[in-house]
Design a binder for these strands. Sequence first.
DNA 1: CATGAATGAGCTTTCATTCAT
DNA 2: GATGAATGAAAGCTCATTCAT
Lengths: 212, 212, 212, 212
Amino acid sequence: MPEEKRQLIEKVAIREFAAFGYDKAGVNRIVEQCKIAKGSFYQYFEDKKDLFLYLITRVGEKKLKFISPIFQNPGQYDFFTLIRQLFMSGIKFAADNPEVTLMGNWMFKNKSHPIYNEMVDMGLKNAQNIYTGLLEQAISRSEVRADIDLNFVSHTISSMNISVIEYYFQNVKGEEPDIRKFDEGIIETVDLLIDFIKYGIGTQKKGGNDND
Amino acid sequence: MPEEKRQLIEKVAIREFAAFGYDKAGVNRIVEQCKIAKGSFYQYFEDKKDLFLYLITRVGEKKLKFISPIFQNPGQYDFFTLIRQLFMSGIKFAADNPEVTLMGNWMFKNKSHPIYNEMVDMGLKNAQNIYTGLLEQAISRSEVRADIDLNFVSHTISSMNISVIEYYFQNVKGEEPDIRKFDEGIIETVDLLIDFIKYGIGTQKKGGNDND
Amino acid sequence: MPEEKRQLIEKVAIREFAAFGYDKAGVNRIVEQCKIAKGSFYQYFEDKKDLFLYLITRVGEKKLKFISPIFQNPGQYDFFTLIRQLFMSGIKFAADNPEVTLMGNWMFKNKSHPIYNEMVDMGLKNAQNIYTGLLEQAISRSEVRADIDLNFVSHTISSMNISVIEYYFQNVKGEEPDIRKFDEGIIETVDLLIDFIKYGIGTQKKGGNDND
Amino acid sequence: MPEEKRQLIEKVAIREFAAFGYDKAGVNRIVEQCKIAKGSFYQYFEDKKDLFLYLITRVGEKKLKFISPIFQNPGQYDFFTLIRQLFMSGIKFAADNPEVTLMGNWMFKNKSHPIYNEMVDMGLKNAQNIYTGLLEQAISRSEVRADIDLNFVSHTISSMNISVIEYYFQNVKGEEPDIRKFDEGIIETVDLLIDFIKYGIGTQKKGGNDND
DNA sequence: CATGAATGAGCTTTCATTCAT
DNA sequence: GATGAATGAAAGCTCATTCAT
């Protein structure tokens, strides 16, 4: 399969899955937009499922490459700075690749869909695992309270990651694409969220350990 | 429509929508499981959409009735106690009505689906609005920091609500239904989450205002 | 079946058949509008066909009664005066009973429909037969040329009868129901048609018999 | 779509629409008779409506091509000769293409059907317009009386055109297809009709011009 | 390898008719 | 007699997948 055609199919198919979700996405529409024959499509990909899993894999790689610079010197940042950077690049990635993001979010939100299990069987890690690792490190460095449930907190932070991206999509939809304006607004929002994660939203200081 | 049959259809249809989502849910499967004729179904409901919206309405009513005791004396609890109770009864409701919950969550996670707009056109409120109101009150009482973005925080707490329910479903799926065990585990989890929301997960006290 | 209910069903059913034709007419809609039970309907009538044929019969009787005065002294009028009167009362009947007329016209225009044969098997005469009789008499009185094909001319005049009614329906649709205006316009139109039938539309006199 | 199959579908579908009308015509029956899969049908045509409108267009073209020679030298014939030729070729066309004709007549007789408007929106002319133009010309040439209602007469002649074709179908149905016999009989019938239109059927000459 | 016509099980929905109450 | 819930065949249409060319 020539590189050019592969990229075309990828682009069109991601848009399709992003717009309709896995079930309602149509092979017909994809091949029509790509102006390739249906038969050709089935020579490149076994079936719709194969295409989807291929794309999910590629998307994962792409996103990982996008955020990997953050992990080059993992020791030099504290946990909250790290996840701030992760959230920021997550949103930057979403802004640059909205369709890719929508597709990824669809998968995240449809973990009961049969195809989700097929995905995990392929060995794809999801973001949650990353947070679990970072949290363990942060606890060992005393940056994070030790009395948390690791799995639960990583799951929750993961949800917040998706949540903030969706919030962004909902609130900037239709606005003029002033990049600076976007940056300012979203930096503020992420900072609020990190603040939220770090300190909560209560006015009282935490429990009895304030006086220690 | 006799009460008995209405309940049967309701139960079967909720399971269907929960398992497959709106689009992939099949009227065929529903009538087969109910052992009623296809024609009978269409005497009870105009179409698939009608059934879905009817169920969503019923589910909303049911859930509202379930959590309404919390709002009987809204003044006597502080914000964090209130949302703790909301989360708790949300999870209790989810545990008692897993399919109903899955169906509700499907709707929550598919706000771009055409049927979502039809639902809001019917006047159904979603959970987020509740949080916005509670947060405003909490800020006026100085229970919550005033420098938060109301919409964003209510959106995030709403997501956490769903998130914790999903976490619960994933982690107790398959286990024996030992109610006591569940209660203990989930109380702990919710408390952790409320703690999370209230104080964050950082070991440091918030900013400079500790010394004020 | 009480008289009151019979008349209601008749009225509603005629409107239904007029609006949708035999095939698309719905028993559901009829019983809904009549506010009678479906079961009751099938106690009055064997099936949809039975209802239709009953109505067609009644309509035929009604129309015959309406135009019968014309035939009380058939000898006193010449052929063209008679059919002028027939056309006139046909249109008057159509104006007074538009739905009945539409239903009758549907049957006239769907002679290839299976139900048409069932109708003729019941022994219902159609208008064409009337014209055949009148034409025979007119020829014997030398009011009409003898070199015509009886069946063909009666068929054609019959078509014209329907045609003028349809023309009327199309051209007065939406106008205010000023009866006088209607009468004037339609009298003129019928006179033109009778003129048409009597003398044709050519400017030349017929053939060589002008010089006789 | 291969020519062979296109012709098969066309033929079968025209027969179906001719026999049952638009609403009762069944895609199922069509594909069964063509021995093609249902899916194939829907690759050729968007839906039933698309098929019908395609056929009506084709039929219109076919008929227009059939009668177009008549209009090559429109000036050389008087009005009555022209419509005689139109009627004659109309019947000839009907004899050669009975199903096509039945389908066209169905449309003519169902002007209140929703699909009729879709047809006129496509820009298809109906026969009536042709007669209006010819009549205007004929009046200016003093071949036709000037005191007629143009719309009404063209509408009536149009009806007669359909009427004569139906008369023909009814009276030759079942007879052996002796072309010569047909020709003789139908020529006679059309001549009678033209005579009818030209001079009417009265024995008296028209109005005051008898004494000229 | 490329093509796109062919496939057919599956979908949602309709409606005349029946029959137990 | 009255009722209306129950019926199920049949309709129009979709779409992932196959395969002969």
